[in-house]
Computed example of a mutant assay.
Amino acid sequence: MQKILLPVDGSIHSMKALKIASDLTAKYQGRLYILHSLLRGKDASGLMALDISSQFEKPLQQVLNKAMSANMGPAPDKVLYKIGQIILDHFGEKARAQGVAFEVLPIVSGKPADEILKMQEEIEAGTIVMGARGVTPSDSSTFGSISQEVFSRAQCTCISVK
Rank of each mutant, 00 (worst) to 15 (best):
T136P: 00
H36P: 09
T142A: 12
P76F: 13
I83N: 11
I83K: 08
P137F: 01
A125W: 11
S14Y: 07
K19R: 14
Q29H: 08
Q120R: 08
G30T: 13
R31K: 15
E121T: 01
K66A: 15
I116W: 00
E103Y: 01
E121R: 10
P112R: 04
P76K: 14
M68H: 00
G10W: 03
D23T: 02
D89I: 01
D43I: 01
I34V: 11
A101F: 06
V161Y: 04
L64V: 09
E149Q: 04
C158N: 01
Y33P: 07
L64D: 06
F56N: 00
V161F: 07
K94R: 06
K162C: 10
K66R: 14
K118H: 01
G73R: 12
K42W: 14
F91M: 13
S152M: 06
A70M: 15
D51W: 06
L18K: 02
D23I: 03
K42E: 11
V8R: 11
Y28R: 09
F56C: 02
A17W: 08
D139Y: 01
V8S: 09
G126E: 13
A75S: 15
S14P: 05
E93A: 11
P74L: 12
I159D: 09
E121A: 07
Q148V: 03
I146G: 05
L18S: 14
E93C: 08
S53F: 10
S22V: 04
G41R: 01
R153S: 13
